[in-house]
Amino acid sequence: MPETGPRTPDPRGQDQPRVTSSAIPAAELPVGGGSAVTPVQDAPAHPTPDDRDTPAAGGPAHAGTASKRARKAKSRERHSPLFLWVKEVATVVLVAIVLSFLIKTFLFRAFYIPSESMVNTLDVNDRIFVNLLVPEPFALEHGDVVVFRDTQGWLVPMAEKEAGPFTWVQDGLTFIGLLPDNSEQHLVKRVIGLPGDRVVCCDAGGRLMVNGAPLDESYINPAEVPQARDFDVVVPAGKVWVMGDNRNHSADSRAHTDSNGGFVDIADIEGKAAVIAWPLNRVTALDNYADVFRDVPAPAGK
């Protein structure tokens, strides 16, 4: 067999024929004697989800294409600025309603002042927040301004108001605490006598006396001199004696001695008025004037 090329020196001392790359086709390369290199054919890549869902040109649409596009549209809708803004506002409103209801139920409740019986401390149309933690778990004190339910018929019965188209909205907002209670079933007065106290009107100077100590009542409406109305009472257990700061215009314990002796049951007290919340030019914390009652001794027998 003729040689295919010039001989090259064999390292072992023998001449070997040199093979050029063009002499033997790739398919005829020997398999043994080392790492074989086989030709690599182009194989189709594994189809991706997008490839599977994409119909071939001119072929029928894949069944999952429509559903995937719908999911993508919903995802874009959920992440749109308008959707996110509406969701955020709805969350804030819901949290506010829940917090308002919890606060109104356990901490503070709003009330509306319809009369002048507490002028100048409270004006007509004032809105106040009442601390519901008084009288329980925190005890009442002399001078506290309290809101209580009218269970003794102090108020003149009011004609039932006709329900308007949005009455349910107002009632709902009042219930959760976002609107003050405008009902005619509550009164607001100042506590003068606590259980066991003896309250007398009046001394030679026209002053109230509690357990024998005269009171210089700096909270009374200074526009008028209070008209003296004689009484001498001892406050029973579980009750208080209350009076309005606008003495000449307050139908308080003095005017209702025929009903429960003029006393208010502590169980009927909703709470202690803590702050005027509206109007803004009258926002202030309410004082119980502890200095007025500083010299009042403990009731006899205590």
Rank of each mutant, 00 (worst) to 15 (best):
L178W: 13
E162S: 06
S259V: 04
D245L: 03
H142P: 08
W241R: 03
E160Y: 14
D232M: 12
F138S: 13
S253F: 00
A223L: 13
I220K: 05
V283S: 08
R190T: 07
G59F: 12
F231N: 02
D171C: 03
D295Q: 06
K104R: 15
D245P: 08
F175E: 06
D230N: 06
V31D: 14
G64M: 07
D126S: 11
V145W: 02
Q16R: 14
Q185V: 03
P30N: 09
H249A: 13
H186I: 09
E136I: 15
P47H: 12
F101E: 00
R254S: 06
G172K: 07
N248W: 09
W85I: 14
A66C: 05
S117H: 07
F106Q: 02
R229F: 13
F148Q: 05
S183E: 10
I128K: 01
G177K: 10
C201T: 01
M158D: 15
W241M: 00
G164P: 04
D181R: 06
V292R: 02
G271W: 04
R294F: 07
T8A: 14
H186N: 14
V292P: 02
N182D: 11
T91L: 15
T4Y: 01
R18Q: 08
I128S: 11
L173Q: 04
Y289F: 10
G196C: 00
N288S: 11
L94Y: 02
G143Q: 02
A298D: 05
V188S: 08
P137E: 03
V296H: 04
H62S: 15
G164A: 11
K272C: 07
D265E: 08
A61M: 13
A163L: 15
T48F: 09
V37R: 15
P297G: 10
